[in-house]
Design a protein around this nucleic acid. Structure first.
Length: 656
DNA sequence: AGGCCAATACTG
DNA sequence: CAGTAT
DNA sequence: GCCT
């Protein structure tokens, strides 16, 4: 501990001065310079805010701003010492922690010492033992452990009914069933009535027994979640700052994938050993990060990025819809740094669309419940029914269909029940909804609407803004309309997740196929490299052999690609998916699956049917069908319990 | 050291 | 065409 | 970022 060299007595120490009783002023003036010259570091942020995007960094009055959002303060991971003024009493210190959403568990790994430790160390020119200068703050549960069992989430969750409404049937099937044309969504109000208990971090010290839920302690699903979150943050940051196909872009893709894998890992990750078999997306750097996470709960790299001025600015700018990395760069070079700066100087934005979206920033940040999505669906359906009685098939897609408890936008897929071409249905529906006050803005609307028919596919894209609930926030709403023959491909496409789509299409590529939101076809030759294509923003020029492979259902698409079907809640890039793709390719190489000659025989009979005959037995995978929902319900139960909210727990149990 | 990069649609 | 979006 |  004792160091001779005065310039290094605070080496590897990073101090945070708790701003109470005037300590911060004293510290800045007197101690900070000395600490710095003695090899230490001083940090002025104890927590880092991150919520997928930065909300305003310092915001005391966060009344409306995303109360129950995913938004989270994580400990600034570089801090090693909390310095508290001697005069502070332990109660007010605890209240200080409370105000900043910090549980005692979160600072358990830190030295919490009085300012005397700093001044004396400086005076004596050696780093004194922290033990002798501890700031006594412990409240009730300072003897941790005992309060709860070591295995918190092991109770086998009872089987639960799907959160998702049943998969949308084929349009024609519906039409055949007679009068009831526009499908009514079953009134699944269940999850709407479960109060969204806030942040487990808070409930940890609100409730009774204490879970010292830190990262190096013991594995749990909660720890998985936090690890996934770390990777998600890394991916968001790299995405925000990657202005071109580059290293950063690859990092973004990597972290995006690994985060999805971790977030859907079906059991607590015990150690890095669990992840290491993940060949292809788990290398030395990731290993290092996971280790660091187990040690410290975060990543210095991430903390550094999050506190970097340029990164912070980019993340803020990109809360504006249609502002990406390039535009952020422009704004930054003109000296703007915050969202407020942009609002003061909207003229610095390059398009009116972006300026128009300034007013949506706050609302678009907010998530909504499934109930609200369902209400929006009802409204759209009733208008559609009035305009086109019995003609349209309208389903909810996106993360709603994947079963997420909360979503950030509302996605629809619309098809006709018959084979007629897509016309101006969407326009008329949007007009009518606007008239009703439901639809409030159009951000993007494809021009063709079938008439212009400039693309070979007859489809319509609409991105807009709506207000499903009177007085509620404005929401992003997307509607796609496609021809019935493309229904399955469109449904697959707009159900996502994005990472899942990418993996599917990459797999298709490896199988000599091309998968899009319109079709699946066998590729004969490709001109131009993918890299070249990407750089110039074009897609490759692919030549297809024969007609596209006809698929009427999503199942058939999976089958045609040699994959097992995955219902929407499983549409993420998880650890098994890569392996399964691999397996499919291996089978193709054995030639049983992909007999040369192509995907479709001359009669045009779908491959899917043909293959049924010579089906080869394949090893079953563990059925993870409902893992995701169960995980979510489990979390809810835990939070409800922790908050002592018996009713909420009952509801969650009932739902399960 | 250098390749990898989903596929597509709209804006300005 | 570059940029952003899905 | 990972892989060859």
């Amino acid at each position: 501990m004792s160091q001779r060299e005065p310039s290094s007595i605070f080496a590897s120490c990073c101090l945070f001065f708790v701003p109470m009783d005037g300590l911060s002023a004293r510290a800045t003036k007197l101690m900070k310079p000395r600490v710095l010259e003695m090899g230490g570091r001083v940090e002025d942020q104890l927590t880092v805010i991150f919520s997928g995007d930065l909300t305003q960094q310092e915001e005391d009055d966060n009344d409306v701003i995303d109360l129950e959002q995913d938004d989270e303060r994580v400990m600034n991971p570089v801090v090693t010492h909390l310095i508290v003024a001697r005069s502070v009493n332990s109660d007010s210190f605890l209240r200080y922690l409370g105000r900043h959403d910090i549980s005692e568990a979160m600072i358990a790994r830190l030295h919490v010492v009085t300012d005397g430790w700093v001044t004396d160390s400086i005076k004596k020119k050696q780093r004194l033992n922290e033990k002798d200068h501890q700031f006594p703050y412990h409240s009730v549960a300072s003897s941790p452990a005992l309060s709860r069992q070591a295995t918190p989430t092991q109770s086998p969750p009872p089987p639960s009914p799907p959160l998702t409404p049943p998969d949308p049937p084929l349009p024609l099937a519906l039409a055949a069933s007679g009068g009831a044309t526009v499908p009514r969504v079953p009134a699944v109000k269940m999850e709407a009535s479960i109060p969204e208990v806030k942040m487990e971090v808070c409930s940890a010290h609100g409730g009774g027994g204490e879970e010292e839920e830190y990262h190096h302690t013991r594995p749990s699903m909660e720890r998985n979640r936090r690890l996934a979150k770390m990777f998600k943050q890394l991916s968001s940051v790299y995405k925000a700052i990657a202005t071109e196909p580059s290293q950063d872009f690859q990092r973004y893709r990597h972290y995006s994938r690994i985060s999805e894998i971790v977030s859907t890992w079906p059991e607590p990750i015990e150690s890095v050993q669990d992840l290491r078999p993940l060949r292809g997306c788990y290398g030395a750097k990731t290993d290092e990060k996971v280790n660091e996470f187990f040690r410290t709960g975060s990543s210095q790299r991430l903390a550094h990025l999050l506190s970097d001025e340029r990164t912070k600015a980019f993340m803020e700018f990109q809360q504006i819809w249609h502002v990406g990395a390039a535009e952020s760069n422009k704004l930054y070079r003109r000296g703007l740094r915050t969202l407020a700066d942009v609002k003061r100087h909207p003229e610095y934005l390059s398009t009116d669309l972006q300026r128009r979206c300034l007013k949506y920033v706050e609302d678009f940040q907010k998530k909504m419940t499934r109930a609200e999505v369902e209400e929006a669906h009802q409204q759209v359906c009733s208008v559609a029914e009035r305009l086109y009685p019995g003609e349209l098939h309208i389903v909810l897609t996106g993360s709603y269909r994947r079963g997420d408890a909360q979503t950030k936008d509302i996605d629809f897929l619309i098809t006709r029940h018959d084979d007629r071409e897509v016309a101006d249905e969407v326009n008329r529906i949007v007009d009518s909804l606007s008239h009703d006050g439901f639809m409030t803005d159009t951000l993007v609307l494809s021009p063709g609407c079938g008439f212009g028919a400039k693309s070979e596919h007859k489809s319509v894209t609409f991105y807009g803004v709506c207000r499903p609930r009177k007085g509620g926030p404005l929401r992003r709403i997307d509607m796609w309309m496609q021809h019935r023959s493309e229904y399955a491909f469109a449904l697959l496409h707009c159900t996502g997740s994005a990472q899942f789509n990418i993996t599917m299409r990459t797999h298709a590529d490896k199988m000599g196929l091309q998968l899009t939101q319109h079709k699946l076809a066998k590729v004969i030759e490709a001109t131009g490299s993918k890299q070249g294509a990407r750089r110039s923003g074009q897609s490759r020029n692919l030549t297809h052999e024969g007609p596209p492979i006809p698929c009427e259902t999503e199942e058939e698409i999976f089958t045609a690609m040699g994959l097992r079907y995955r219902p929407p809640p499983q549409r993420f890039h998880d650890r098994d998916f890569g392996a399964e793709c691999h397996e499919a390719i291996a089978h193709r190489k054995l030639t049983w699956y992909w007999p040369d000659g192509g995907a479709v025989d001359s009669s045009g009979e779908p491959l899917a049917k043909r293959r049924k005959k010579d089906d080869i037995p394949r090893p079953p995978i563990v059925d993870q069908l409902l893992v995701r929902q169960q995980h979510q319900l489990q979390l809810k139960r835990e939070r409800a319990m922790a908050a002592g909210n018996l009713k909420g727990a009952m509801m969650a149990l009932k739902g399960a």
